[in-house]
């Protein structure tokens, strides 16, 4: 079975494109019937992931490549339709065990992105690409008891 992405886009690591990517992701999630809340959460997670690549991976350089790939997921037992996303870069590789959200009991500016991603997505996996860069794989399913949960695609 062909597992190639249904959508794959390459963008430059320029924060000005985050709004466009959010619209793309939210639009796809809406089309496959995920409901408004889940669509907003997926768009937020993608925004945070891209911002982390730009900020930490590329040191705010605005001319480096980032790839975003999407696969719709069928409804299953206990969940509605969903989406799998991969975000890949050519940034410096890091120890994935260091990617933890920081403690939230002391409000400080910054460091919230990883926490937000883990909070809103169902599966979050960071790994190293070969020969360089990092890959973030995220999965989100719409809850089947969500009244917004649509008919799928």
């Amino acid at each position: 079975m062909d597992d190639s992405a249904h959508i794959r886009v390459q963008l430059r690591s320029d924060p000005c494109y985050l709004a466009g990517v959010r619209q793309l992701v939210a639009g796809v999630c809406q089309r496959i019937g995920m409901g408004d809340t889940a669509c907003s959460q997926v768009a937020l997670a993608v925004d945070e992931a891209l911002a982390n690549v730009i900020r930490h991976g590329y040191g705010r350089a605005a001319d480096r490549p980032i790839w975003l790939s999407l696969w719709p997921l069928e409804k299953g037992d206990g969940h509605g339709p969903g989406i799998r996303l991969e975000i890949e870069d050519e940034a410096k590789q890091i120890d994935v065990s260091e990617l933890k959200g920081r403690a939230l009991d002391d409000p400080k500016p910054g460091g919230l992105g990883v926490h937000i991603i883990r909070e809103v997505m169902d599966e979050v996996v960071y790994d190293k690409r070969s020969p360089c860069g990092m890959r973030l794989t995220m999965v989100k399913y719409a809850p089947c008891d969500d009244p917004e949960c649509g008919p799928g695609h």
Partner: peptide
């Protein structure tokens, strides 16, 4: 209409 952690960081700094 929308805010991410960059906006939150700005408001946390403003609060401090």
């Amino acid at each position: 209409e929308y805010m991410d952690s960059s906006g939150l960081a700005t408001l946390v700094e403003a609060m401090r």
